[in-house]
C-alpha cells in the first residue's frame, strides 16, 4: 500500500471512529455500573487490526480516545478510556498474532480487556481496590458487547477489502 493510501485510510478511520464515539454518547446506558458501554468505535480498531496492522489500529485508537475525551468527556473519563483502549489493543494485537481466533473472539477479548484496563485505572485514580467488585459485571458486559461489535467488525473485514501494494 502506498503511503498516501495508508494516510487516507487512517484519516477516514479516525473520522469514522469519531462519529461512532459520538453516536455512542447518544445511547443511554441503562446500568448503574459505570464503564459499561457498547464500544462501537472498536469496530474500526478491529477492522484496521485485520486489514492493515496493529500500529494503524493503535494510532487511530489513540487519536480517537484523545479527541473524544476532549469533545465528549472529561479528564477522568479520558484517563479511563486511554487505559482501557491501550490494554484492549495490546490484548487484541497479541491474540491476532497467534492466528488462532476469529475477529469475534478477538473483539470479545478486547472488550473485556478494555473493562479491565478501565478498572485498573480507576483503582489507581481512586486509591481504592473497592472498585474491583465491579469487574465480574463489567467482564460479562464486555462479553456481550464484544460479541455484537465483533460480529459487526467481521462483516466489515469481509466486505471491505483493501488493495495491498
Amino acid at each position: 500500500m502506498k503511503a498516501t493510501q495508508k494516510l487516507t485510510l487512517i484519516g477516514v478511520s479516525i473520522a469514522a471512529a469519531m462519529v461512532l464515539s459520538y453516536v455512542e454518547t447518544l445511547i443511554p446506558v441503562p446500568f448503574a455500573v459505570p464503564g459499561i458501554k457498547l464500544g462501537l468505535a472498536n469496530t474500526v480498531a478491529l477492522f484496521l487490526l485485520f486489514r492493515l496492522d496493529w500500529k494503524a489500529a493503535g494510532l487511530v485508537s489513540l487519536i480517537r480516545v484523545l479527541l473524544s475525551g476532549l469533545l465528549f468527556g472529561n479528564a477522568a473519563s479520558l484517563a479511563y478510556s486511554a487505559a482501557g483502549a491501550a490494554l484492549s489493543l495490546v490484548v487484541m494485537a497479541l491474540l491476532k498474532k497467534t492466528g488462532a481466533f476469529s475477529p469475534v473472539g478477538i473483539s470479545v477479548s478486547g472488550a473485556v480487556a478494555h473493562n479491565v484496563g478501565q478498572i485498573l485505572m480507576a483503582v489507581v485514580l481512586l486509591g481504592t481496590d473497592q472498585i474491583l467488585w465491579w469487574l465480574p459485571a463489567l467482564a460479562v458486559s464486555g462479553i456481550v458487547t464484544g460479541l455484537a461489535i465483533g460480529a459487526a467488525g467481521a462483516v466489515l473485514i469481509k466486505k471491505i477489502s483493501i488493495p495491498i501494494r
Binding site: 488462532a100 481466533f101 476469529s102 473472539g105 470479545v108 465480574p136 467482564a139 460479562v140 462479553i143 467481521a154
Partner: peptide, 23 residues
C-alpha cells in the same frame, strides 16, 4: 469462518465467562 477458530473463540469466551461468574 473456519471451525478451529470458532472452537477457539468459544473456549476463550467460556473461560472469561466462567472466571467472571466464579468471581
Amino acid at each position: 469462518m473456519d471451525k478451529k477458530k470458532l472452537r477457539n473463540d468459544i473456549i476463550l469466551i467460556l473461560a472469561v465467562l466462567i472466571a467472571a461468574l466464579a468471581a
